[in-house]
C-alpha cells in the first residue's frame, strides 16, 4: 500500500463517498440468494422466463448498489456467474461507463468480461503491468482454441 501511494495519485472531485469492494464471495452470495428466492416463489414462472428473470434480478441488485458516484472494485466476479449473467454484468458496466459518474476496477479470468467495450486492459505478470488487448491474452486464446476444436484441444492439453 505504501509503495502504491508513491505511484498512484487519487484524483476525484467531489470526494468519493460511495463505492464497493466486491469479492467473488459477494457475487456468489447474491447469486445464491436470488436462486433461493426464485425457488421459494409460489408463482414461479416457467424455466425460460426464470433464467431471464434471474439475470434481471441480479443486475437490478447490483445496479441499485452501483448507481451512485463511486469507485467499484470487482475481484473475479465471473466465479459466480453463468455466461449469460456475465453478459448482463457487461451491460451494467456499460451503463455505469455511460453514466460518467462511476469507475470500475476489475480483475477477471473471463474472456467475456475482458472484452468490455471501452475498458483499458492491463496484464499483470512478475515483470509488472502492461497494457494488453483481450485477444492477446492466454485466457482468450485458450478458449478460442478449445471452441475451434474441443477434441483436438483436449487431446493436446491432457497428453
Amino acid at each position: 500500500g505504501a509503495a502504491l501511494a508513491n505511484t498512484f495519485r487519487g484524483h476525484w472531485l467531489p470526494k468519493v463517498t460511495a463505492g464497493w469492494f466486491f469479492r467473488a464471495e459477494s457475487f456468489y452470495s447474491v447469486a445464491r440468494y436470488l436462486d433461493q428466492a426464485a425457488l421459494e416463489d409460489p408463482f414461479r414462472p416457467p424455466p425460460d422466463f426464470l433464467s431471464w428473470s434471474h439475470g434481471e434480478g441480479f443486475i437490478r441488485f447490483f445496479e441499485e448498489r452501483c448507481r451512485r458516484q463511486g469507485i467499484y472494485i470487482l475481484d473475479e466476479p465471473e466465479s459466480a456467474l453463468s455466461p449469460s449473467r456475465q453478459i448482463e454484468l457487461l451491460k451494467m458496466l456499460q451503463r455505469m461507463d455511460q453514466s460518467g459518474t462511476a469507475q470500475v476496477i476489475m480483475a477477471t479470468h473471463s474472456p467475456l468480461l475482458m472484452a468490455c467495450p471501452g475498458a483499458r486492459l492491463f496484464r499483470v505478470s512478475r515483470f509488472g503491468l502492461e497494457p494488453a488487448d483481450f485477444r492477446d491474452t492466454d485466457h482468450f486464446r485458450m478458449l478460442r482454441d478449445f471452441s475451434n476444436d474441443p477434441d483436438g484441444f483436449l487431446d493436446e492439453a491432457l497428453y
Binding site: 500500500g1 463517498t17 463505492g19 466486491f22 479470468h109 492491463f122 499483470v124 485466457h139
Partner: peptide, 29 residues
C-alpha cells in the same frame, strides 16, 4: 481491467487500491 495468471498478485493489487480509496475489505464507503 486486470488479467493475469493465478498468483500474480491481482487481488493484492485490488486490495491496495481499495485501501487507497478508503474501503474496508469487502465493504463499502
Amino acid at each position: 481491467i486486470i488479467v493475469g495468471e493465478n498468483g500474480t498478485g491481482k487481488s493484492t493489487l485490488l486490495e491496495a487500491i481499495g485501501a487507497l480509496a478508503g474501503y474496508d475489505e469487502a465493504g463499502g464507503g
